Simulated assay, not measured.
Amino acid sequence: MAGQFEIFTDAEAKVRFRLLGADGSVLAISRSFEDKRSAVAGITAVRECAGTGLVKEARSHARAGTGGTRPGQPAPYPRRHRPIPAA
Score class of each variant (00 low, 15 high):
M1R: 11
A2I: 08
G3L: 07
I7F: 05
I7P: 00
A11D: 04
E12Q: 15
E12L: 10
E12A: 09
A13D: 12
K14V: 00
V15T: 14
R16V: 07
R16Q: 10
F17C: 00
F17Q: 01
R18M: 10
R18V: 07
G21I: 04
G21F: 04
G21N: 14
G21V: 05
D23C: 01
D23P: 00
G24N: 11
G24I: 02
G24C: 02
S25K: 13
L27S: 11
A28K: 14
A28G: 08
A28F: 13
S30V: 07
R31H: 06
R31I: 03
R31V: 05
R31P: 04
F33N: 04
F33W: 13
E34N: 13
E34L: 13
K36G: 03
K36P: 00
R37V: 07
A39S: 06
A39D: 03
V40P: 03
V40M: 06
A41F: 10
A41G: 06
G42T: 02
G42V: 01
I43L: 04
I43W: 04
A45F: 04
R47Y: 03
E48Q: 15
C49D: 09
C49A: 12
A50Q: 02
G51Y: 13
G51L: 07
T52G: 03
T52E: 04
T52Y: 01
T52V: 06
G53L: 11
G53T: 09
L54Y: 06
K56M: 11
K56V: 12
K56R: 11
K56H: 07
R59A: 07
S60H: 12
H61E: 09
H61P: 00
A62D: 05
A62F: 10
A62S: 06
A62W: 11
R63T: 15
R63P: 00
A64S: 15
A64N: 12
T66H: 14
T66V: 03
G67C: 02
G67S: 00
G67N: 04
G67E: 00
R70G: 09
R70C: 06
G72R: 03
G72M: 03
Q73I: 11
Q73W: 04
P74T: 08
P74F: 00
A75Q: 03
P76L: 10
P76T: 07
Y77A: 15
Y77D: 14
P78T: 01
P78M: 03
R79C: 08
R79K: 12
R79M: 06
R79D: 08
R79W: 03
R80H: 12
H81E: 11
R82A: 15
R82V: 13
I84C: 06
I84W: 01
P85F: 03
P85M: 04
P85H: 06
A87L: 08
A87Y: 06
A87I: 09
